[in-house]
Simulated scan of single mutants.
Amino acid sequence: MKKNETALAPNAALLVIDVQKGFDDASFWGPRNNTAAEANIARLMDAWQESGRPVVLVQHASRSAGSVLAADRPGHAFKDFVADRAGRASLLVTKTVNSSFYGTPDLAAWLTAQGIGQLVVSGIQTNMCVETTARMAGNLGYDVLVPLDATHTFDLEGPDGLRLTAEELATATAVNLQGGGFARVVTTAQLLAASGAPAQVTA
């Protein structure tokens, strides 16, 4: 395999995590990074569905008081471009925590039943549900690919007022996942090329 070439299994599953309308509320979340994330996720969904590979949608139903992602709030709904493609998805997982493997129905059981060993993990937020799911998938023995440009996150404040920008957090996720051996960090263009789809992405 040549440098920068990515191999995809014929049944590699694309996970689209928490691409929900509530994340459009800038007053709730603050500044974000990677405005191209949604367009790249849409391209991946189309490429996966065109090639007959499975797409798994994951939807967060927050139990936190006042959350824009609570099941009874408008923000719980998928963003329109995901909802428009949802009818061709192979599975919908609902979760209340960061990892997509702690949801309903059981993701690992479904993957096992389908004989799927390779996962492509995309969605929101890069350093939260995407990273947590990718780490757990790596621990469970899956071959995990994370197209960082098909994810995004928000600025975040930690202890003693330490604040990192969304871009800094995304960079940290990339280092954590690939440096830690959980996943390989790739690009949407690499995955589109591997799937046989045109490798045009939004920069």
Rank of each mutant, 00 (worst) to 15 (best):
H152S: 10
G52H: 11
P54Y: 09
T153H: 04
E5A: 15
S67I: 06
Q59C: 08
Q114K: 15
D25G: 00
L148D: 02
L8T: 05
E131R: 15
V68S: 10
R63E: 14
E168I: 01
V58T: 13
D106V: 04
K21M: 02
G161T: 09
L91W: 09
Y142K: 06
I116L: 01
V120E: 12
G138F: 10
Q190Y: 06
R85Y: 02
P147K: 15
W110R: 00
A13D: 05
Q118H: 05
Q49L: 12
W29R: 03
D18W: 05
Q190H: 02
Q114C: 04
P105I: 04
V144I: 11
A113D: 13
A172K: 06
L69Q: 10
G103W: 08
L69W: 06
L57E: 10
A108N: 14
Q59Y: 02
G52W: 11
A42P: 07
G22R: 09
A166N: 03
I41C: 12
Y142T: 09
V56A: 05
A26D: 12
V56W: 10
A113E: 14
R63A: 14
A113I: 01
A36W: 08
A9Y: 00
A193D: 14
Q114S: 02
F28D: 03
D80F: 03
G75Y: 04
D84H: 07
D84P: 01
T94S: 04
E157P: 06
L15S: 04
D24A: 14
D149K: 07
I116T: 13
A137L: 11
A203S: 14
V19L: 03
